[in-house]
Design a protein around this nucleic acid. Structure first.
Lengths: 214, 214
DNA sequence: GAAAAATCGAGAATTTTTTAACAATATTTT
DNA sequence: AAAATATTGTTAAAAAATTCTCGATTTTTC
């Protein structure tokens, strides 16, 4: 059974990767896997994989390994992928549209219900069944519809203000693509995708490698 | 002066954030900052900030703090943001186009030189001065032009093959948006932006908070 | 069916990362 | 100009994360 200690974020970050690899295995008909084999696939150590999984309970069987389909389901349940989620996207520019079109959503039961933007040229258009609505209608919309996750794809100049509006309307989970850290109350979880930071890290390692190979 | 010990990736991940905050300070005319104040802004502990910076040398002055503009420049140099980088994007679908339009590039001297795609409807179009070219011309292009960073925005079914082609043509830095881990030789650095993993983590914490608030 | 091999789960040991403590030094106050 | 305050850089301590070890259990081999 699940233990009630605090699980480290590093563990939680690895679970989606395990989930993905197990999905691939399942798809090609593999139904048994050892931590050693998962280690070879993922690059994490076998010990770490066992340790990670044991945070949530013993899913494996000594002498045998893990049942692929079962382990995948268990990790899915831990992450909450067995449930349905409704999403809105605020900011229907390039990133917002790309996210709306993102097929990764369909790996689990995420539904993009609507997008919001201020640009009159965009309002009224649809992306994969999701209508782009006027930002002014955001609050009304959130009063009527239950939304689980809001994605912020606005320019950074307005992201804080948009986030505060979302929180006022009851949103507790934000996926933030604006290159700024949102100041939010504790009861709101923000997952940042800061592309500039990612690119800058890449740049550091690119230069480091170039220097070393000289 | 820079010490030659191995710097932990966690440190490198924090540098872009320092850089961003220092840029904001600089823009509003602040020219002195203490680790304590930076701590309040960034959420990292003052001690950690000092420790991080001292990996690369003492940029501050005891009793005084750090000169904002100077520290920003130093971090910029560490990350390599004082140089120019040429980028190509392989896969001109939603994400590829969004990245091509991404204004975060212009914070430093990154230039998107071209995009590549197989879709005839896209080939010939331009995004912000960058032409979408036929994927078949990728290798020829890379022979003629020096490219620093390649961005992979293809479907996952072809990302490994594309990556291998890029590496054959001399690419050593890959920004990977395909939801798959690339198997690459050691001399290639891959920075992954796995949106599905990010969303799954968010989902975990969303559910955790919901449970706790019940 | 006994012996060998494989594998997990759990706790111990190790390594890495973060935080704390404080001497050294600069600035500000009186 | 002396005392008080602020702040860095560095070393030490603490905490966290990872790896190692090994008993328990299952499967495979002979």
């Amino acid at each position: 059974m699940g233990k009630n200690e605090k699980i480290s974020p590093a563990v939680i970050r690895r679970l989606p990767k395990y989930y993905r690899y197990l999905g691939e295995l399942s798809k090609v008909g593999v139904n048994k896997i050892s931590s050693r084999e998962l280690s070879d696939m993922t690059g994490f150590s076998a010990s770490q994989i066992r340790q990670d999984l044991n945070n949530f309970g013993g899913f494996g069987q000594q002498g045998f390994g893990y049942d692929v389909e079962n382990l995948r389901n268990e990790i899915g349940k831990i992450l909450g992928l067995d449930k349905k989620y409704k999403i809105i996207i605020v900011g229907a520019g390039n990133i917002g549209q790309a996210i709306a079109n993102y097929t990764g959503f369909y790996e689990a039961d995420y539904e993009v219900v609507a997008l919001f933007d201020k640009n009159p040229k965009l309002i009224g258009l649809s992306i994969r069944n999701a209508l782009i609505m006027d930002s002014d209608d955001l609050e009304d919309f959130l009063e009527k519809e239950h939304i689980d996750i809001a994605v912020i794809c606005t320019p950074k100049s307005v992201c804080q203000q948009v986030a505060e509006q979302l929180v006022r309307c009851g949103i507790r989970a934000i996926w933030n693509f604006a290159p700024k850290d949102l100041k939010m109350p504790e009861e709101v979880y923000v997952e940042n995708v800061h592309l500039n930071e990612s690119l800058f890290s890449l740049t550091y390692y690119y230069n480091k490698m170039k220097k070393e190979s000289e």
